[in-house]
Every structure is written in structure tokens, then in C-alpha cells.
Design a protein around this nucleic acid. Structure first.
Length: 757
DNA sequence: GCATAGATCTTTTTT
DNA sequence: AGATCTATGC
């Protein structure tokens, strides 16, 4: 992670490669230890060296537990420990919170009250279950939307409240209903033999807390617990590692409050800020020397994050040469922004001898990747995209996985309902509803219920009943066949027997080909798992699949520029970083601007992004952007926070001046005209590229509306604009139509044609 | 039970 | 604008 020389074996003592505070942290003896490690201060180095140090002190490797958030970070940590100590590294427990918990629950499934082969529900599965529950409780789906319910449940789980505790605290009708949903959701998980992501941690915690002898056994197992990215832990996670570290309390946590960017997922910054209160005898060590970035980059990052009120005042320092100024690129729109970035990268490659793989493009939302992908393809520059729709989330993959899952856990309701009529077997929605009602009314498990042909026949018509008998038979046969063959061959066989490809043809024949390819990739992934894992098992594979993030499998490829969100970039570093889309409402995101706490998190996100850069940092702004239609925007407040001396500004917006109060742009989405836009040759090209429509983009029309404009609407006919209200995405206009009525329309959606200004 | 057209929401970030 | 969900008619 640092640019300092890599640890050489032999010769010098590893400790001589460390600075004073780093060495103190590494050699700290027993008792709680808090390491406040700024960005690029050699945090991973300290953790790995500390593990090596503990081993050298005679601690057995299996007595050490190191926990991180991503599999990638865990893998990296393991690799580096192995570099330092060789084979013993193998026996050190290095894992993520979630994979540790999954492993724990497999081992202790009885005490945890779970079947051995429990399913792990990812986000999509748990959303489906929430919807199912809301429907089965006969609650209005509009009020209790999956999004609202899930955020409530997740918040409850973050606070360690079970359904009963939640119900007791509910003070209004809505809260009581949520409590009902929560209780039913958990009951359904239980009878499906499944846990969701939050439950992995919570069940591990409650199993440890309620079972004393088991707890003592696990506590004895770990004499030293090390936690990375402690600022991102939630209540359950902090408590989990706290318990495991008892009674010795050899807990070493590493983190940086300035890099806390997961509060929205329940991370509690108080865990790190209040660590010294929880452990009064904790030793605190600060790592403030940065080995990664040029001073100019650090200054800019600091200028922004230091505006936050809720933080420990601190400032990183480095003895490097200042480096170049930060380049701020002002582009007229997102298309030009992407062009500029690609152009700069080509220049860096040709003139400065940099490799594409040295560069990363960061953005706030995944949707922004598209413009860059197009630009890279236009210019034939290789790139890798991290994130977006994950491979294992794709419908065709989840279908296959659901079949596989059902052969090991036949009670998995979500998997069952996913495939019960895919491919179509004549078990339609009505039959499905009847089955669900009957199965739950009888309080039976699915395996049991479906095998009972009388019960099924009583619930649904004869055709559906026959189809269900077929399906159960098929699943049982597949299950039996599994023992006889290799996993990947079996998967291939499954895809054939079930006739999975029929699903794709039913859904969308155009995409059938790419779906087939994806499933082939899945088979290949299983084959790889099979050959590279010590004791491969189907449930092991499915678990791995549920717990991988896209970032985990990310490896920079030769020559390829990386594209990812700011969140994904945490923990990585690149010589050249582009932070893009620096516009009010996008970064910081408008939803985050409502509350001071979430706005501060955006500042930290900027800090995380900027401190990824070793040599050069570029910031880009696009005056208009195609979001739901183009919207004009003002430059991000982050830009305003940066002292001008550090900036090299490239203004590509025509007819604007850079002046004192700002960077010279017009009010959002109002003053520029579609016509003027198109007259510019370069812009014209961009518009044609983007929408193949030969006419003016509607968006341009919307932008030139003003009171008095006469328009035509395909449905309502001719009318006159009375007023424009609001700004940005939410802009509406009142229009008086000739036919006599007045209507308020969303400017960005209304298909208006301008007749007269 | 299924196909189609209309309605509605979406885009924050992820284990 | 586009995807996804819902309502309706066959």
C-alpha cells in the first residue's frame, strides 16, 4: 500500500522499516489498542506487521483473528502476512465480518438454530421476501414499499432490536405494522432456513451471547483480535469483535474517522470516536505521516474534509515534493467531460509514459459510468468497470443458483418461488398464491408440503398439482445425481435438464445469447472453485457467491483504465485519479444535502477519493448532465472549498468567464438555448451521437421554455406556458391549453414542442 | 393463465 | 428515458 520498499526477508529487521508510531503500534503488548491511521499512513502495513510480530512472540497463528470488510482486503492482508512469515500465515483467521459469521454459523448451526445447509439471502432475495410478507399480511404495498420497510428493518437490526423489542417501542400505527412485518419476515426466514446479511452477524452475536460454554470456547480460540476499517463497523459488528476478544481484551482496531463513508449502512462513527471510553485502558496511536500522496493532493483533500465539524482535528504530513497542481476541468456537459478525461489519459500515456492501469475514474453514482464507457470505446482505450450490476445478481445466474440452492435447502421459499414457474410449467400466479396460503396455514415446511400430493391437490387445480409433482421429482433427481458427478458437470447437466434456456427465450429472445454466455461463465466459475478450493462443496460455493462484492474480484488489468464509484475505491491507490461529476446535487448528492450528518459524509467521501491519488489529481465538472433528461447544475461546493492556488483550471465552457464569486456558469438549466448549443460544431456532434434522433432533443426544448412560450403537447394540444417553477430536476411548468384547462407538468418529462417563443 | 398496455418509479453508496 | 410493476382484457 505504501510506496516504501517492500519488506525484504532477512537482512534488516522488519521493524526497522517502520516509523516510530508504526513501530509502537506493531510492538504494543497486551490490552486494547486504537490506531488512528490517516489515509496512506501505512495502515495495512501496520496490521500485517503486527500479526507477524505476534507470531514471532510465540502466539499460535490460530489464536489470531483479523477482520476486514471486503474479501479483497482480507485476501490482500493474508497475502502480505504470508510474505512476512510464510506458511504459518495460513492458519491465521483472516476474513470479512460476513464470511467469518457464515463460517461460525455453519460450525455452530445447531446452537444457532439453523439447518446445516442454510441459505444466505442477498439484497435482492430479502427484498423479494419483504414484498411477499407485505402481500401476505394484506398490507397496502404502496404504503409499505420494499424500500421503506427494508430501511426500517435494517435500522432495527443495526440497533440490535428484535421484532419484539421493535414492537414495544413502536408508538404509532405505522410502527406497529412495521413490527408485524418484521416479525413475519424473521419467521419466514427461519422456516426457509435462511439468513440475510444483517442476520449473519446478528445470529452469530446472539448465539455467542446466549450460550456461555460455546462463548468461552470461541473466546479461548482467539487471543488477539484485529479489526480493520473500524470506523465502518455498526453496533453488532463492534460488539461481536468485542466479545471475541474477551476476556484478554487484546483487541486492536484500526481506522480513520475521516474515512467513515458507510453511516448510511448503519456504520456508527461513535465506535471509533468512543473506543477510548469503552476501553478506558486503551492505548491510542496516531499515524499521521502519509507515504502515498503528493502534498498538493493532501492539501486539497484536507481543505475539504477540514470543513466538517464532527471530526478529530488532524492533518497528514509528508516529506515528498509538492507535485503538480490539481487540474480542474470545466466541461459543458457530461459527454464533453468524458471526452476530456479520455483525452487527458491518452496524453498522460503518450507524453508521460503512464500506463492506462495507473488511472482511475471515480464517480458518485454508478449511472455515471456510461458516458465514460462510451468514450473509452469510441477511442479504443481499454477499461475495466467495477461494480454496477454484479454478475451473480443477473437474473439468469440467479435462476440457476436458485435451482442449485433448492437441491440443498428445499425449504428456501424465495428460491422456490423464483423458479416455480420458470420455465413455464402452468403454475401461474393464482396457483402460487394458493400454495403459499395453504403451506403457511398448515405451518409446514416447503419440502414437506410439496411432497404431500394430497395437500397440494387440495390447494390447487389438477394441472398445477401435476406440474408441482413433476418439479419435486426433478429436484429430487438432481439432488441424487449430485453425488455422482463433479460440481461443474452437474451444473451443466442441471441447466440442460431443467431446460433453463427456455426461460431466456420466453423472457427476451434477443438477450438469450448473452445469457447463455453468462451461464457458461458460471459453470467455469464453479469449475475454478472446484479445483482451487480445499474442500469444495455446493453450499461453500453458494456461500462464496452470496458474499462476494464486485470489488473483491477486481484486479487491475494491464493497460486498462479503472472505472468505479468513490465508495469502491476505499483502500485502493492509483498514481492518477479523476474525481468526476463535481456538481451540486450529484456530488454532494442532493439527498445527502438534507441533513448535516449525511452532508459531512459526502465531504469524507471526497476526502477518500482525493487521497487515493499518489501523483496527480483531476477534478471534473459538467455544466449540464443527462440524468433523467439534461439538467444544468452548479459546480460542487467542494470546488469552492479548495484554495485557488492549488488549482489549475481548464475551462472548456464557451462564453463563460472565471470570476471572483465563482467559476462563471449560468443558472441551472435556464439560460442556454438548445439552438445555440447545436450551432457549435463540436457540440452538434455530441448531440447526434447521443440521441440518434434527428430533431432537437426534447431536453433542449424544455430548457428554453419560459412564460409566454407557445407549445404543443401530443395529447393536450396547443397551449401557452404561464410560469416555470422550481429548478433542476423538479422544475415544473403551468400550461394553459387552448382546450380550456390548465395543467402543471414536469418540464423534464413533458413531450413539448415549441411553436413560438 | 397469459399477453399487452398503461402506470410508476428510478439513482447513492454495498457486505 | 428506460426498466419494472400493475391492471386489464382475452
Amino acid at each position: 500500500m505504501t510506496t516504501a520498499s517492500s519488506p525484504s526477508t532477512g537482512q534488516t529487521s522488519p521493524l526497522s522499516q517502520l516509523n516510530d508510531p508504526q513501530r509502537q503500534a506493531v510492538t504494543h503488548g497486551n490490552g486494547p489498542l486504537l490506531i488512528l491511521a490517516g489515509a496512506g499512513s501505512g495502515k495495512t502495513r501496520v496490521i500485517t506487521f503486527r500479526i507477524a510480530h505476534l507470531l514471532s512472540q510465540g502466539i499460535a497463528p490460530w489464536h489470531i483473528l483479523a477482520v476486514t470488510f471486503t474479501n479483497k482486503a482480507a485476501g490482500e492482508m493474508k497475502r502480505r502476512v504470508r510474505e512476512l512469515v510464510g506458511e504459518p500465515a495460513h492458519a491465521v483467521w483472516v476474513s470479512t465480518f460476513h464470511s467469518f459469521s457464515a463460517r461460525f454459523l455453519r460450525l455452530e448451526h445447531e446452537a444457532a438454530g439453523l439447518p446445516k445447509e442454510f441459505s444466505i439471502y442477498d439484497d435482492d432475495d430479502s427484498t423479494r421476501l419483504v414484498k411477499r410478507v407485505v402481500k401476505d399480511l394484506n398490507l397496502p404495498e404502496r404504503t409499505y414499499t420494499a424500500g421503506v420497510v427494508k430501511s426500517r428493518l435494517s435500522a432495527a437490526k443495526d440497533r440490535l432490536q428484535d421484532p419484539r423489542a421493535y414492537a414495544n417501542l413502536a408508538h404509532d400505527d405505522f410502527g406497529r405494522r412495521i413490527a408485524e412485518i418484521y416479525a413475519e419476515y424473521q419467521a419466514r426466514l427461519q422456516s426457509a432456513g435462511a439468513v440475510d446479511f444483517d442476520d449473519l452477524i446478528l445470529r452469530t452475536l446472539s448465539t455467542l451471547e446466549t450460550n456461555e460454554s460455546l462463548r468461552q470456547r470461541w473466546q479461548a480460540r482467539f487471543l488477539h483480535v484485529l479489526v480493520d476499517e473500524y470506523q465502518d463497523t455498526n453496533a453488532a459488528q463492534a460488539r461481536l469483535v468485542g466479545i471475541l476478544a474477551e476476556p484478554e481484551r487484546n483487541i486492536c482496531v484500526v481506522g480513520d474517522d475521516d474515512q467513515s463513508i458507510y453511516a448510511w449502512r448503519g456504520a456508527n462513527i461513535q465506535n471509533i470516536l468512543g473506543f477510548a471510553k469503552t476501553y478506558p485502558d486503551a492505548v491510542t496511536i496516531r499515524l499521521e505521516q502519509n507515504y502515498r500522496s503528493r502534498p498538493n493532493i493532501l492539501e486539497v483533500a484536507h481543505a475539504v474534509v477540514s470543513k466538517n465539524l464532527n471530526r478529530h482535528p488532524k492533518k497528514l504530513w509528508t516529506d515528498k515534493h509538492p507535485g503538480e497542481k490539481i487540474t480542474l476541468i470545466l466541461a459543458p456537459d457530461d459527454w464533453a467531460e468524458a471526452e476530456m478525461v479520455v483525452g487527458r489519459i491518452r496524453l498522460l500515456r503518450e507524453r508521460d509514459g503512464l500506463n492506462g492501469a495507473d488511472c482511475v475514474i471515480l464517480y458518485r453514482t454508478n449511472a455515471q459510468s456510461r458516458a465514460f464507457e462510451e468514450a473509452f470505446r469510441r477511442h479504443s482505450v481499454p477499461y475495466v468497470l467495477v461494480g454496477g450490476t454484479r454478475f451473480y445478481q443477473r437474473a439468469e445466474i440467479k435462476d440457476v443458483l436458485a435451482y442449485m440452492q433448492l437441491t440443498i435447502n428445499g425449504n428456501d421459499e424465495i428460491a422456490l418461488l423464483r423458479i416455480i414457474n420458470r420455465p413455464k410449467r402452468g403454475i401461474g400466479e393464482a396457483s402460487q398464491e394458493k400454495l403459499i396460503a395453504a403451506c403457511h396455514a398448515a405451518r409446514r415446511k416447503w419440502v414437506d408440503f410439496l411432497a404431500d400430493s394430497d395437500a397440494v391437490a387440495a390447494a390447487v387445480g389438477p394441472r398445477a398439482a401435476a406440474a408441482i409433482a413433476q418439479l419435486s421429482l426433478q429436484l429430487n433427481r438432481l439432488k441424487a445425481e449430485r453425488t455422482g458427478m463433479g460440481m461443474s458437470d452437474w451444473c451443466k447437466h442441471l441447466v440442460e435438464t431443467v431446460n433453463i434456456k427456455q426461460i431466456w427465450e420466453e423472457d427476451d429472445p434477443l438477450q438469450a445469447e448473452s445469457r447463455r454466455e453468462n451461464v457458461e461463465e458460471l459453470v467455469a466459475a464453479i469449475a475454478e472453485y472446484e479445483t482451487t478450493t480445499e474442500a469444495p462443496s455446493l453450499s461453500g460455493f453458494l456461500e462464496q457467491v452470496a458474499l462476494v462484492a464486485d470489488i473483491d474480484s477486481y484486479d487491475s488489468q494491464p493497460e486498462a483504465v479503472t472505472l468505479m464509484t468513490l465508495h469502491s475505491a476505499k483502500g485502493l491507490e492509483f498514481p492518477v485519479v479523476f474525481i468526476t461529476g463535481l456538481e451540486e446535487g450529484l456530488f454532494p448528492l442532493s439527498r445527502s444535502m438534507e441533513k448535516p450528518e449525511t452532508l459531512e459524509e459526502e465531504y469524507r467521501l471526497f476526502y477518500v477519493g482525493a487521497t487515493r491519488a499518489k501523483e496527480r489529481l483531476f477534478l471534473t465538472y459538467a455544466r449540464t448532465r443527462h440524468r433523467f433528461g439534461p439538467t444544468g447544475s452548479m459546480k460542487s461546493r467542494f470546488i469552492e472549498e479548495i484554495p485557488r492556488d492549488y488549482l489549475d483550471i481548464e475551462n472548456l465552457i464557451p462564453d463563460t468567464t472565471l470570476e471572483p464569486g465563482g467559476l462563471g456558469y449560468d443558472a441551472p438549466g435556464r439560460t442556454w438555448r438548445a439552438g445555440g448549443f447545436l450551432n457549435n460544431a463540436r457540440r452538434g456532434q455530441s448531440v447526434v451521437r447521443r440521441d440518434s434522433e434527428p430533431t432537437l432533443p426534447r431536453t433542449g426544448v424544455a430548457a428554453s421554455l419560459q412564460a409566454g412560450t407557445v407549445i404543443r403537447h401530443p395529447k393536450f394540444g396547443e397551449g401557452e406556458v404561464l410560469a416555470i417553477r422550481g429548478a433542476g430536476d423538479g422544475t415544473t411548468c403551468d400550461i394553459a391549453f387552448r382546450s380550456g384547462f390548465t395543467k402543471t407538468l414536469m418540464v423534464r418529462f413533458a413531450p413539448l414542442e415549441i411553436l413560438r417563443q
